[in-house]
């Protein structure tokens, strides 16, 4: 009680007008995106994985162009050489430098993953958004189409495509895009349908906001986090599908290489030269894990739930 007694008497007078402070917001001022960014940066695993992806991407672009070997130069005098100073990952059955081929293959795999995810993104977002915004009959028909596509096993469609079209990177991308976008379309549709019934969209409608402006200002900005997260999961899934196709022999043809092709070749020479399998396998595992962790990190950080 002593401290209380020592309070100066002049404090027991009415305080000055405090109305200015009543509505004051004490918290730091920033957008929801910034909040998400802060959360993402706190997620150490996601940050490390993002850096690894970046390094892999840079290496795959740089190594093949600065190395004295190319991915297709054969050297039959130096077949299946053990890793050495000259050939860090050894050479393959045709004496090609595995170091260059792994990075080249990684690049091709990343390209396929990115391109497939991007095409899925474009088709999926437009399809899903259009379906949700039109609603009614249009929506019903578009959803039936998706159900049919989901009903056919996608692997059959992809293999069919690969057999009909000339082999190559773009054929693989096209084949995977035929059905790959349905997940994105469904997600975007669900999100927009949910947003459409939210009161802020109704308010915009009442204020006379045009449909187009509603889409641009209200629907898309609130769908972006869902889209980004889905893309982060679509990339590794596309890379894996390509690897699988190459592994069963319907993917890229020699001398072009993707991680799937390299793993297939390495698997054939497993007993003689295990290093031919190990390095591309490590590369694909690293890529898959890193993308998944970054995707998870993004989902946690930019949780599409409304922040309360």
């Amino acid at each position: 009680m002593n401290t209380e007694q020592s309070i100066p008497l002049d404090l027991f007078t009415p305080a000055s007008d405090n109305s200015a402070k009543q509505e004051h917001i004490a918290r730091q001022h920033h957008s929801a995106f910034y909040d998400g960014w802060v959360r993402l940066r706190k997620n150490k695993a996601a940050v490390v994985c993002a850096v690894i992806i970046l390094i892999i991407a840079i290496m795959s672009a740089v190594v093949p162009s600065v190395s004295k070997y190319t991915y297709f130069d054969t050297d039959y005098s130096n077949k299946i050489a053990q890793p050495s100073r000259d050939h860090p990952f050894g050479t393959d059955l045709f004496g090609r430098d595995q170091w260059v081929r792994v990075w080249y293959g990684t690049g091709i795999s990343l390209l396929i993953g990115l391109a497939a995810a991007l095409i899925n993104l474009i088709i999926g977002v437009f399809y899903g958004a259009f379906s949700a915004i039109m609603g009614g009959r249009v929506d019903a028909i578009m959803q039936r189409i998706i159900e049919v596509l989901v009903g056919i096993p996608s692997l059959i469609i992809v293999i069919l495509f690969m057999m009909v079209l000339p082999p190559g990177v773009w054929t693989i991308i096209a084949a995977m895009s035929v059905t790959g976008w349905v997940n994105m379309a469904r997600l975007v549709r669900a999100k927009i349908l949910n947003l459409k019934s939210q009161e802020f969209v109704l308010a915009a409608q009442l204020l006379g906001t045009s449909t187009w402006k509603t889409i641009i200002r209200h629907l898309i900005p609130n769908t972006i986090s869902v889209i980004v997260i889905q893309v982060m999961f679509a990339i590794p899934s596309a890379i894996f599908t390509e690897a699988f196709l190459s592994f069963i022999g319907v993917g890229l043809t020699e001398p072009k290489a993707s991680l799937g092709v390299l793993i297939n070749n390495g698997y054939k020479a497993l007993r003689a030269a295990p290093f031919l399998l190990i390095y591309p396998a490590i590369a694909i595992i690293l890529i898959m894990i890193c993308f998944s962790i970054v995707g998870d990190g993004l989902r946690d950080a930019f949780d599409p739930r409304m922040k309360h």
Binding site: L11, A15, S19, K21, Q22, A26
Partner: peptide, 27 residues
């Protein structure tokens, strides 16, 4: 009037001081 305090940075004095009809300096 006003809004309840944000308890991330709670006020030093009486939590209700900012909205009080009878606020004194000591509060």
């Amino acid at each position: 009037p006003g809004t309840p305090p944000d308890l991330i940075s709670p006020p030093h004095g009486c939590p209700f001081a900012a909205r009080c009809r009878y606020c004194m300096k000591v509060c």
